[in-house]
Simulated assay, not measured.
Amino acid sequence: MRATATRPLTGPALALLAMSAAASAEMTGEARAFLEAGGIDPALIAQADAATATELAIPAEWLEKAAAEGPVEFGTNDTAAHVAKWLPIFNARYPQVQVVATETSGAARAVQPLLAFKSGQLVRHIVISFEGSLQDYIEADALAEIDDLPAWEGVPPDRRAADGTFAGMQNTTWCLIYNTDRVRKDELPATWWDLVSEDSPLKGGRVGAANRAQLWTLNLWIHPDYGPERMTNEFLPAFFNTLKPQLRSEGVGGMINLPMVGEFDVGLPTPNDETAEAMATGAPVDWHCPEPVPQYFNLIGMFRNSPTHYSSKVLINWLLSQEGQLVRLVAGGDGPVHKDLQVPGAAPLADRFAGKEIALRTMDGMLYELPKLYAVWNRLWAEAGGPK
């Protein structure tokens, strides 16, 4: 792994590094004020504060080398407004680390940077939400090891790479949005089997479905109560032929917006963070989670041979720390992946799935089972007249 050359630091720069190192022992005032204003439970703030001494114990050498590097560049699904909220809190702790975060689509965020890397170029330093291209990244050996980060141990083992090259950054939970003027609570399914049953009150076009099998049906495909055989022979045929949802060309945003205007009564799949934003507008919608509740984690990693090697590690470490995770929760509703933040109040709409069984989309599921699911889903989607 190529290390980046550094230039000698002046007295003011050395003083800045000393201040950063000392500040790692406690939460910054900016972070505390931001979390308090965002309504985070004081107990969670105190917990994150206590964790900074270990999770943000960045080696002084990393900070010194980071100060000599250029800006860290990466594509993100964060909006500009989202970045504008969390980035100043990061820079209050690490003013020597420059960050350029650009809102991009999936291909520009994950696929194009990998193609550039394989051609010998580096157009991004960090990669986020690249689950759909994970196998390609592994085959290209594109990612640097990050398991020496102080905050690494906060990521649950089943949500990080065994070889230390990537980690989950945030949890997203996928359930059903519904129009409260058109759907009674007693019509909502307790389980996914209830949704597709012969006597489901939601059958016959009341549900709108996006062509996004990887966001929720994969979780069921690898769940012991469903599994590939039952999904192939029972659940998915019932979904398309008994429930008979409207098969839509719109993406996730459409599944959230269209029930608000009565295009259909229930939309799926819809994520907890974006649905919470829709509910906050006062629209007549709510969110319901049949069991088991589909959940997955967005990934973060950094490219090998990056000229911002140390700056990237400092940023990723903060994003994985409890301080960073709670700041992003307030800034944009991102559900923490940190093992000590899996509690009510630490994710949007957590009360809708608290205490329910979680169906986790695993990395093995993405790598080995998703192609098998697609073979079944895509055939049934086409046979049912779903748009291409």
Rank of each mutant, 00 (worst) to 15 (best):
A92K: 02
E291V: 12
Y94T: 01
S133G: 01
G324A: 03
A66E: 00
E383T: 05
L243T: 12
T281W: 05
A108T: 13
F239N: 08
D199V: 04
A22R: 14
T217P: 10
I138E: 05
I316F: 10
L44T: 03
G204H: 02
A375G: 04
A22M: 11
A278R: 13
L56M: 14
Y226W: 08
A46F: 04
A238P: 09
A354P: 03
I45W: 08
E323A: 00
V97D: 08
P201F: 01
G164S: 06
S133D: 13
T4S: 11
G386M: 11
D273L: 13
A33N: 11
L134K: 00
V100M: 09
P271K: 12
T102D: 12
T165Y: 02
Y374C: 09
G365K: 04
D199G: 05
A276E: 06
L243C: 11
E26Q: 15
F34R: 11
G205T: 02
R160I: 07
Q121R: 15
G132H: 04
D148S: 09
A46S: 14
S306C: 03
N77L: 12
A50F: 05
G208S: 06
D41Y: 02
P237T: 06
A354C: 01
L218S: 08
Y226V: 10
Q96G: 05
A67T: 09
G282E: 05
I256P: 04
A48H: 07
N171D: 15
V99H: 03
R184F: 11
V72F: 03
I58N: 09
L114Y: 02
R32M: 13
A57H: 08
K313M: 13
A57K: 10
L320V: 06
L329W: 08
A101E: 14
P284Q: 09
A57I: 03
A140P: 13
A116L: 07
A210N: 12
I40A: 07
T28E: 05
Y296I: 07
E250R: 08
L14C: 03
D265F: 11
N233L: 03
G333D: 02
L373Q: 04
E55S: 02
Q214C: 05
S200T: 14
C289H: 03
M260H: 07
D351A: 09
T104V: 14
Q135F: 00
G154C: 07
K118Y: 10
A46H: 08
G208T: 09
A116F: 07
F166T: 01
F90I: 07
A359W: 04
N241K: 15
A107W: 09
I138T: 02
F74W: 09
R159C: 01
A162W: 06
T79S: 14
T191Y: 13
L63T: 12
L220R: 04
K313A: 10
Q325L: 01
P201W: 02
M169E: 11
L247S: 02
L202T: 01
D340K: 14
Q47K: 14
G365C: 10
W62D: 13
F239P: 07
C289A: 10
A80R: 10
S105I: 09
L220D: 08
S119A: 14
